[in-house]
Design a protein around this nucleic acid. Structure first.
Lengths: 347, 347
DNA sequence: ATCTATATTTGAAACGTTTTCCCATGCGAA
DNA sequence: TTCGCATGGGAAAACGTTTCAAATATAGAT
């Protein structure tokens, strides 16, 4: 048992012909047994199964893919692996996919269109059976065109492009509307909004919900209070810093989950306390929002659920479902915590 | 422009023979041009390249994989997609891999050995070029045996199995040692530890660093203060709840990053304040630790960096590197925040 | 028993590459 | 001028499956 060489001994995987030889049948028969085709005598079936087990046979996925054009692989694109939206959605997708015997490629676009394009090309080259995408820019005509040309089904997550693709998303309009109305009901009128750009659905719908809610309480949206021009943490810090240093600064702030860390960071620098000096609502609940003190009132979106739904939808499309493109909207949940205060002696 | 049918038109991808025909050469020549193998006359080279571009030719990865046995895919196993260790490491791996032209399968074991086994089998079947694994149980002999049999290189992340596999990890022993000594220096003697089980390296090394540090200050480790029997958030809540409700309860607590949410949750239920009633140090820095108030002193580990290093190492192994198995240890960083207090009038 | 219809099994083609083996061409040296 | 050798290009094999047509075995009916 003297292992001097750590070099791997590759035991040469058994192929289907090894199994056929071992069982004394043709490779065609082996294939049919393994693919559960009918019309194989029980006796032979046993022989084949035994042989396969004895040789520890596992079909080569490349040969399978080459022949049958099915890979049982799905490509998943997310814009930012570190963002809870991405990791939660990926977790949901994973749960559903592995349960159904699929594997997945995970790719990170980092919000760059060029990467997105390359990733889609790579997915096509690798012949994934389907694609689930959280796009960075769902309005870019080049991206849209590229998606159209793809030969496999595409399901959009938290994004929407007209009505021609399946899309699963949370209800950002209503969620943001609710957040805004909630703050308005507490007497706030100067409500700031810090979130992602309108390049993608999340930004657009949040802006819509925010604007509608303000309109409904008779307030005109003030552009100075709206910061939607970046994706990074640094951007969030700067946006928060600048909006919270205004002379006539807002009494309340709505921020998206991914930017909450940056905003809290800025607030700490400015030494602003919640909720006395600023009421805060976060769009998208996270551990941070739940566990920081005071707890931050949140609009909770179940991204893992959107991931699961998207995975199921993708698989049904792969299975040949030809119904018109679906739009699934997952509802939000209002989580009341301690970050908002009634504004006394308001404007 | 009336698009009534949203049905996908599959434009039938160009194959290498299409390119060959279009350029008026043999498929062998096309292959040689595209793979930059041997010499091809510049004129022909141009013709082939032009043809390939004109037909938008992209080689079928299955046919390539089948023939060349190289897939340019790496399998990554993580134990919990939602844990920062997993997502940070995955992000680091991703950065390095895509830069080098690799794709990766991401799989989630959920700390279950059965899943782990299936995932490894699936990776082998899909002939990934290499595997990067954060195992749930790095001491299980079946898992170890399975890894040994794998025909492709395996790099362990945050885990260690003897000296026979490449391993990249953070310095958990020293990190935990430092955390413990820090608390001891503040006068604490009853220091609790809540972290993952010793089934894997993280648990073992943390326990080691903790025990050594206590020994060095002349304190015997008290089993009642050590909770290392679970992975879930619920487990963390219960462990914290029980250890913090003891009659003679600890004055300080060391908790691993993944369990911090559960612990903070329990502390909230018990209405314990930091640092007055309990000093807290977290092993593994997170946004939550940084931004909750008071900020929680942390031992920071750069998991993304371990991911990048592991990816580089894997690729070099794939490239045929035959040097003895490497062990890379990424150092920790001590982040001082406000969660610890000097113990006055200590025991 | 014989024939026909059906059930089972076999053998081979096909999938799209890479790669090996061979042949043709052209050039320099003898 | 001829031979040898390097160089560039073509044809075909091989990779491990699935699938399809053809062949054979089985069973039922006469």
């Amino acid at each position: 048992m003297d292992e001097t060489k750590p070099a791997k001994v590759t035991p040469a995987r058994a192929t289907i012909s090894d199994v056929a030889r071992h069982a004394g049948v043709s490779i065609g028969t082996v294939s049919r047994v393994l693919n559960k085709a009918r019309n194989v005598k029980p006796a032979l079936q046993r022989r084949v199964l035994d042989a396969a087990a004895a040789l520890d046979y596992r079909p080569d996925s490349f040969a399978q893919g080459m022949r049958s054009k099915k890979t049982h692989v799905i490509g998943v694109i997310v814009p930012d692996l570190r963002n809870p939206l991405s990791s939660e959605a990926a977790a949901g997708v994973e749960e559903e996919l592995t349960q159904q015997g699929y594997s997945f490629f995970l790719a990170n676009s980092r919000y760059e269109r060029g990467r997105e394009e390359n990733i889609l090309n790579e997915f096509a080259r690798r012949r994934v059976d389907g694609i689930i995408a959280i796009l960075a820019h769902d309005q870019d005509p080049r991206t849209v065109e590229q998606l159209r040309r793809l030969p496999m089904p595409v399901v959009l997550l938290e994004r929407e492009i007209g009505a021609e693709f399946d899309a699963v998303r949370t209800d950002q309009v209503q969620g943001t509307y609710r957040a805004t109305r909630y703050l308005a009901a507490l007497g706030h009128r100067r409500i700031a909004l810090i979130t992602v750009p309108t390049d993608n659905m999340s930004g657009r719908y949040r802006l819509q919900g925010y604007t509608e809610a303000l309109a409904d309480v008779g307030v005109a949206a003030n552009p100075d209070l709206i910061h939607m021009a970046g994706y990074t943490r640094d951007y969030a810090v700067n946006a928060a810093y600048s909006v919270l240093s205004m002379r006539n600064k807002p009494t309340a702030l709505i921020v998206s989950g991914g930017m909450l860390p940056g905003v809290l960071d800025a607030m700490r620098q400015l030494n602003l306390s919640i909720p006395d000096e600023l009421s805060l609502v976060v769009l998208g609940d996270t551990e941070l929002a739940a566990l920081t003190r005071p707890g931050i009132t949140a609009i909770r979106y179940d991204w893992a659920q959107t991931g699961r739904v998207a995975a199921r939808l993708t698989i049904s499309r792969i299975g040949g479902s030809e119904t018109p493109p679906e739009r699934v909207i997952v509802p939000y949940e209002f989580i009341l915590r301690e970050s908002c205060q009634e504004l006394v002696g308001a404007v």
